[in-house]
């Protein structure tokens, strides 16, 4: 990372998941926001981490249905054919 005291970047990293999930305490949040406003590299890490999680959340909902043939075989394996709509 860039031209400043990197020890703060390290400690920030440990709280990053809680920060992007919005579950970090106010004080630590403020510490991160202060640091990120001064550190370009950490800002990029925070922004791209947030975007990474967002992209996975966006695509998660698209893959929730079971292909019809797989569903049929599942119902047969469970002797539930009579419940196949």
């Amino acid at each position: 990372m860039s031209e400043h005291d990197h020890s703060q970047c390290r400690s920030l990293l440990a709280s990053l998941s809680d920060y992007v999930d919005g579950t970090l305490g106010d004080e630590l949040c403020a510490d991160i926001e202060r640091h990120v406003s001064e550190c370009r590299d950490c800002r990029v890490v925070v922004d791209t981490l947030r975007k990474t999680i967002y992209l996975y959340h966006e695509t998660a909902a698209e893959n929730a249905s079971v292909p019809e043939v797989v569903r049929e075989r599942l119902y047969r394996a469970l002797n539930l054919e009579d419940y196949l709509a």
Partner: peptide, 10 residues
């Protein structure tokens, strides 16, 4: 697990 990639693709 320090981040390696620092490109700002957002």
């Amino acid at each position: 697990f320090a981040p390696a990639n620092l490109s700002d693709w957002c």
